[in-house]
Write a protein that binds this DNA or RNA. Structure first.
Lengths: 205, 205, 205, 205
DNA sequence: TATGAATGAGAATTCATTCAT
DNA sequence: GATGAATGAATTCTCATTCAT
């Protein structure tokens, strides 16, 4: 009784997902170099050899993780956007980003370690850069909409620009999230956000 | 006719410094695991074996780099503090931190990758944590002195605290510096600082 | 179509045995330090790396050899004891020990070299000491049963004791076996035993 | 004020002796492979390089140790022989050998480890074999003088021969000395000798 | 003579990847 | 598909020996 093509495909996908999950955890925990293929296979409950039926190499696996992780993150943002108000405030956006980070801790941890290594970035091709660009673009869009409202003195006027503002925001969010995933249990996220809120309200409202 | 002890000592120091420099560059570029001892030796222009005359192990080398780097950073801050005004504003402090980061790019890159790896942190013992603690303490001291001046509504009053404010600042600085060392040539540091300035002036003055 | 677990297990055991045999020979010939893993692998007909599928380290391999060798020796003694008379004479015991030594030449050679190296003994933990203790105990038991029969002058009476007698016996047996395994083909074991026999008969009968 | 040739020679000899002593201690403690040249030089209080002014290689050093050690042992025997009775009994000879062993512990320990390794023996050329032969010859001479006096039954008569008897003796002495140097402090040498004495008196007197 | 820097050949060990079954 | 045996290159580290000074 041969399974249908669809069944096969579904099983494939399931197995892939299991391996990706195991690898993500281990990469996040020990870094790409520190997590051996055999450890990943063991955690995924399969043999080393089988892993190569699903992924051509350790690099391919990393790539798959990245794609999956990135898709998940985007999906989370999409869901949050739909659930929220029509047009979230910048602060809401930041808060949302931070809280979602906790949902994808392992991915952010992995991403954090990958971003430090030019070699790793090459492995992922342009993906990491694209990823950062997209975030920056989105932030810039936010800022473009808000910056005009900023009261400005004559002196700073020429230098104010959405791009730099987005950079600043990105650094802030990135910094918080980085610290957050490094101490997920003890980081005082609520307090930090509470301090951030008046800062951005005064600025953008 | 053997060299004098002084000669030996001088040569030792010179060689050590050369190795440290080579290793720092490679660690910063490829991470601790990614930079092989043989690659370090090659870049330092010596044989692999010789490295072990100067450092008992790769770990010891890392440690030496860390100590040296950290000492350099502190020295830079000390010099800047002496050169500057009596009591720098918080913004000056931030700006200073960012500009000094550029002077110690490789060290910060290395530190960035070390902070993502629990294994590496163990290698360095408590040093990394101490390092973060010291920065946080210093920021907290700044904030303690400034926060009372913040105009506060009744609602936020109970939650405002120097620790959380320091955390926020640390995230901001860390984020900027992290991005900065990753794109040392193209990062718009001046613009970002220009945007940051009014924010903190409005808050702390 | 994967192999069954039984097949794997059988293969494992076979491979392990082959490696143990190769290592035993080389350790016996060149000592633990002198026999490189690569040489062992080559003699076992496998790659270096594969050895580490079976033994976690060279030390583990040594340990496995020791356990196996010691078990074999004990088994040999057990078989000999069952096959022999109800209660063998001391001389029979000695003769048996010497002849069995030839059956386990490599093991005794290895043991001989291990016993000379404090470092190696540490590697094996208490095993080597236990091993010597067991032999001494067994000999002491023999002597305890026999010594009372010794005619003794008044002078030596106070000093005679089974422990010292066992020590003497152990030295004798150890000496013979050591020489024997060093010249397994040319050592005149029969003649030496022939000379030993009347000595111990006159003493213990 | 140039030193005389004799003075030079004396200094040379002194330095050599110091190195030999240091090396002997370390070889005895850790074995030939386990004692590094640098450790030897450090213990001798000189630089690594200088060692090669006195000995062409580590092997040469081993050889020098062997020559020196063997000469010392012979000298000890000579002195003991002169100090003792005109013709010592076999037992006296054995006792003397054991007690002298303690005086040359390190040498015997080294010898013990060398004798287990064919490779090491090759390094020393024929010397180890010669050394054993000489001992055996001396023992055989003893036995030749004494064996005729042995009361013999008709049965053992054909097999008794000085060579085998010497082998037996050698094994005994070797065994005792080996155990002795392995536990120089706790070995009950006096007791063991006390047990040995009647054995050999009954046989040879 | 005397120094310690320097080398290079190995040592043990790990690991991504391939392969026979 | 699925297994784990097998490989070989790379890694960290050690050490006898040589060399410039």
């Amino acid at each position: 009784m041969p399974r249908t093509k669809e069944q096969f495909h579904a099983m494939q996908e399931e197995s892939r997902a299991e391996i990706v999950q195991a690898a993500l955890e281990l990469f996040a925990e020990k870094g790409f170099d520190g997590a051996s293929v055999s450890a990943i296979a063991k955690r995924a409950g399969i043999s080393q050899g089988l892993m190569y039926n699903y992924f051509a190499s350790k690099d391919e696996l990393l790539l798959a993780i990245f794609e999956k992780g990135w898709a998940d993150v985007q999906e989370s943002f999409r869901v949050a956007a739909e659930a929220g108000r029509e047009r979230p405030s910048l602060f809401d956006f930041i808060e949302n980003a931070c809280r979602l980070t906790l949902k994808h801790q392992d991915f952010w941890r992995l991403l954090g370690s990958l971003r430090t290594q030019p070699a790793a970035i090459e492995r992922l091709g342009e993906r990491v850069h694209q990823f950062e660009s997209m975030i920056l673009q989105q932030l810039e869009a936010f800022c473009s909409a808000s910056l005009p409202k900023l009261p400005r003195t004559e002196k700073d006027a020429p230098t104010l620009n959405p791009h730099a503002e987005a950079r600043l925001l990105f650094a802030l969010i990135d910094g918080i999230c980085t610290h957050l995933v490094r101490q997920p249990d003890s980081y005082p996220l609520d307090d930090v956000l509470a301090h951030l809120k008046p800062l951005y309200h005064s600025r953008f409202l």
